[in-house]
Design a protein around this nucleic acid. Structure first.
Lengths: 354, 354
DNA sequence: CTGAAAGCGCTTACAG
DNA sequence: CTGAAAGCGCTTACAG
């Protein structure tokens, strides 16, 4: 029986075929019509118990796995939702994704993840490809896209949720927080602590426009206050392409202090950078906050474990994902009563580093 | 022209339909047969330049996006590769995923990401569902799966790469490192430093069996040495479900020292936990390595930024992803000449924390 | 180089 | 409750 002559291969049509067990095979095995197998699988209560059992047995015996593409093509519906983010190496997006996944999987949907590497052209290409899978909706990070991306999504006429930042204009639905307001809130905090010479330390800010929005909010707030300056430290010589944010922060601290010795407080673009700076401060014996105060953004758990504790702004990342997923699902299910834009807000956590 | 009476809707067949532009629409617009449009898009050099241009114009004018499901169903081929990992909130998997993505996207494939939350039953369910999309291959983290998972994959007869740990038995192909050997290497290092009362601190080790393998390797090495003890600290009261590993390490350190005051060196299950412990040591004034030496695993950048530097074992995470992707692609393209199992090894980085 | 026909594996819409 | 027919939007295989 171990012979494997070509003749063993079952009769095939001229077409390729997967060679896999199909719905018809199950139907034949169970002695029913294919449509009955389809019903037994998709709407079990429309099939008599006797047939349901016979079909279930045949499915198990043959190891039948339904071909989702055929089903989706026939029914013009998929349960795969594309999620497009700029980066996976950033915990922030990963936590939002976790919130999305949790929500959509509970509703029987699957997530198709795409990463753009902060490249808007790649984003457009991804959107184009993913729309080819006729998704019931699309989840997209950010509010800034190429015109082509927006056009593709509008032409496809699918529900779209843009998540991460909250803003006035969106393609369809939007959930996030105002980074401008977050920057202003940190500026207010630092001023309340008595600091007047502030700095914002960012990396790759052309790509990470949300960081730039925080800087803008900080800057505007201080201009309005009149007595406080904000210096933007953006082009850091140490910023290598593959460096982690912690390494960038580590490297930036001495450069910033050398460039602006009178700086009093630094707001880093994120907690990772701030942690790197604090670790550097520790190694070099730079007192925080006495020599320079340090603050971060995101509210990662590590912020509370530093000595001194790192002042930061906590964003409800998982909640952003959950709400984005829920908004999309509601719309897919025809619920039009929901809000189209949600500002999830943020929380400033003052700690000893400022 | 703003009227939107039902009559405006174009004539439809009895079937659902996406209402979207199809290949036939493009064909009609360009005055050719559908198959010619298909060729112009998929194998452009088999079509005359004149037609190619006319078709390209029609595609652009109509905003045609090919229906991938129809294409995949007809050709029995997809370019979507499922990647299944236990968690996305762990940088380690994220970096492996980045390596995979980079490799498969360069070859024109897309990645469909699924996360199991360390639940083997969820893994089996995910594999079953994803196989319904008739993927050209599957990438799966780890070598331990339910029999049902293995059976599904073997029945589907698709190429499979299991990545993360390297081991003797795999479904098809395997790339990773030996965690047993990594544990032994750390034990050898700690013994070489003069420590004889060692501890291994793990969290959720029933799920994270790779951490248990490192413990096993460490333990066996020390038993063989004869003069060194290893205590396993596993059930930590502070281990809340939602705590980050850093918080677990932070919380574990005092507990461990209270339970075993004479312990000399601790090997943490990963760098995050070790960092949490070092931050705790710093806050509580516990001298590292004098009171207790600390080591981690993974070689995250932060390990080099700690004071003292954190001894760790670096795993080539991105390379694991790249090689896993490359192995799968080679097999998909019919290249059978390649190796089926790759041990990528690891590097021990001795630093001042030990 | 271009096309008419058949088919991929399912589900919808109609019948009974 | 069950089924025969037609169709989803594309590609394969065969002709010219």
């Amino acid at each position: 029986m171990k012979r494997r002559s070509p003749a063993v291969r079952p009769k095939q049509s001229r077409r390729a075929g997967h060679g896999a067990v199909t719905l018809s095979d199950v139907a034949t095995a169970a002695g029913v019509a294919p449509i009955t197998v389809s019903r037994a699988l998709n709407t079990p209560d429309t099939v008599s118990e006797a047939l349901r059992e016979r079909i279930g047995a045949a499915v198990a015996a043959l190891g039948y796995v339904p071909n989702r593409m055929a089903g989706a093509l026939a029914s013009a519906r998929t349960r795969v939702v594309p999620v497009i983010v700029p980066s996976l190496s950033n915990v922030v997006f990963v936590e939002v994704i976790a919130g999305i996944q949790e929500t959509v999987e509970a509703a029987g949907y699957q997530m198709l993840l795409g990463s753009t590497d902060y490249d808007l052209a790649r984003e457009a290409a991804l959107v184009a490809t993913l729309l080819g899978w006729a998704p019931p909706g699309v989840l997209l990070a950010g509010l800034r896209h190429l015109p082509r991306t927006v056009e593709l999504l509008k032409t496809a006429a699918v529900p779209v949720v843009e998540f991460m930042e909250y803003g006035p204009r969106c393609i369809d639905m939007n959930v996030g927080l105002s980074h401008v307001r977050a920057g202003a809130a940190m500026a207010a905090h630092l001023r309340a602590c008595g600091y007047r010479r502030l700095g914002f330390v960012g990396a790759r800010m052309r790509d990470d426009y949300r960081a730039r929005q925080r800087y803008d909010g900080m800057n505007r707030h201080c201009i309005a206050a009149g007595d406080t300056t904000v210096t933007l430290f953006e082009t850091l010589s140490c910023e290598a392409a593959n460096d982690s944010d912690q390494e960038v922060g580590w490297c930036a601290l001495p450069e910033v202090l050398a460039a602006q010795p009178r700086i009093e407080a630094l707001f880093f673009a994120n907690d990772e950078m701030a942690v790197g700076a604090m670790l550097r401060a520790r190694r070099d014996g730079i007192a925080v906050p006495d020599r320079v105060a340090i603050a971060g953004f995101n509210g990662l758990p590590v912020s509370g474990l530093m000595t001194p504790g790192l002042t930061t702004i906590t964003s409800p990342r998982r909640a952003i994902g959950q709400r984005a997923g829920a908004m999309l699902l509601a719309r897919i299910n025809g619920d039009l009563s929901q809000r189209l834009r949600i500002d999830v807000g943020f929380t400033l956590e003052p700690r000893a580093s400022t």
